Computed example of a mutant assay.
Amino acid sequence: MSMAQPLAVETHGLTKRFGAKTALEDCGIEVPAGRVSALMGPNGAGKTTLLRMLCGLARPSEGEAAVLGRRPDPDDSAFLADIGFLAQDIPLYRRMTAAGHIALGGRLNARWDADAARERMGALGIALDRPVATLSGGQRTQLALALTLAKKPRLLLLDEPMAALDPLARHQFLTALTEAVADGDLTVLMSSHLVHDLERVSDHLILLDSSRVRLAGDIDDILAQHRVLMGPRRDTTAIERDHTVVKATHTARQSTLLVRLNGPLHDPRWEVAEPDLEELILAYMGHTGRPAPLATTGEAR
C-alpha cells in the first residue's frame, strides 16, 4: 500500500467496559479511505460497540480513535456532518412519509441532497407519499440508506443493515451501496453475519471475536497468508513449529489443517489449497487459542 494513502478510521487500544463486562478490548484497526470494510464476528463480539464509539455515540473506557482525522465527538458539528450512521433498528418515524423524512433531513443537514434521495426511491419503485409504517422491511431499509447517503457523508457506518432483508432486498441494498461508493469519496464500514453478501462488495475485513480483533486487513492479503493443507493423518508438530495452525480436523486416515503461513511450506506430502473467506472466518471464530492478529493494512504499508 502506498505510504500516502489516508486512513478513514484508525484506533489504538480502544476498549469499552460496561461495569464488569468488557464489550471491546484493545482494538487496533486501520481502514483506508475509499474502501468498503466488512466488520464481522459473532453476536456479542463488540461490533455495535465499535461502531457507536466511531460515530461518537459512546466514549471509550481506554484507548483512542481517529475518524477522518478527528476524535469522535457528538458535539462537533463538522465531525457529525461527515459521518453517516445507520443503526440496526432502522430509526424512522412510522407515521411520517418518505417525502416527509427527506424534507426533514434538508432542515437538519447543511449539504443535503434531496434530489438524490428522491431518485433512489423512484428507481426502487418506493412511493414517497406512503407512511413508513406501510412500507416493507426492505423498503424501510432502502429509505434509511437513501436518507443516510443524502447527508453526503465521507464515512458510512452500517450496523447489520441487511439483518431482516430477503435475498432480493439484500441484492438491491448492496447494489445501491456499491453505486454510492463508486459515485463519490465514501468509505464504508458495515457489520453483518452474511459473508457471501459482504464478499461481493468488500475489499477489507475486520473480524472481532470475544471482544478482540482477530483479523484486520485487505481481504486479498489475508487470504494469501493462509492455506488449507490436506494429507494422510500424521503428527503436526513440525507444521505447528513453523506456522500457526488455526484449525485442525482429523479423521482415521486424513488430516486437514487451516494454517497461517509464517514462511514457505517445506513438506511436499501436503496437498495445498487456498481457503475461501467464509471458511477462514468460521475457523477463526471457532479457534480456542489466541494467535496474534494479522497485520493491519497500515502495518503492512
Rank of each mutant, 00 (worst) to 15 (best):
L7D: 12
T11P: 00
G19N: 12
G19H: 01
K21I: 04
K21Q: 11
T22M: 07
A23Q: 10
D26H: 07
C27E: 04
C27G: 08
G28Y: 01
V31L: 06
P32A: 13
P32V: 04
V36D: 02
L39P: 07
L39C: 11
P42H: 08
P42G: 06
P42N: 03
L50T: 10
L50Y: 03
M53C: 05
L54I: 00
L57Y: 12
L57F: 03
A58W: 05
E62A: 15
G63D: 11
E64V: 04
V67A: 05
L68K: 11
P74G: 14
D76A: 02
D76C: 10
S77V: 14
G84F: 03
L86C: 10
Q88L: 00
D89A: 03
R94Y: 02
R95A: 10
A98C: 11
I102G: 04
L104T: 03
G106L: 07
G106K: 09
L108C: 15
N109M: 15
W112H: 04
A114H: 03
A116G: 03
A117I: 10
R118I: 00
G122A: 14
G125P: 04
R130N: 05
V132P: 08
L135W: 01
G138Y: 01
T141D: 00
L145A: 03
T148M: 03
L149N: 09
A150G: 09
P153G: 00
L158Q: 08
E160K: 07
P161S: 06
M162L: 15
A163L: 14
L165F: 06
D166S: 09
D166C: 03
P167D: 03
A169K: 08
H171N: 13
A176V: 01
E179Q: 12
A180D: 14
A182N: 09
L186E: 02
T187L: 11
V195W: 00
E199N: 14
R200V: 13
L205T: 06
I206C: 08
D209M: 02
V213H: 10
A216I: 11
G217M: 00
D221A: 15
I222H: 12
L223T: 05
A224Y: 09
A224I: 09
M230C: 15
M230P: 00
G231C: 09
R233Q: 05
R234L: 00
R234I: 09
D235G: 05
D235Y: 02
T236F: 07
T236V: 13
A238Q: 12
D242W: 07
H243Q: 04
K247M: 12
T256H: 05
T256I: 14
N262G: 11
H266T: 11
R269M: 05
R269I: 08
A273Y: 15
E274I: 02
P275S: 00
L277R: 13
E278K: 06
E279V: 08
L282A: 04
A283S: 14
M285L: 15
G286V: 09
T288D: 14
G289R: 10
P291T: 07
P291V: 01
A292P: 07
P293K: 05
A295I: 08
T296N: 12
T297Q: 07
G298C: 10
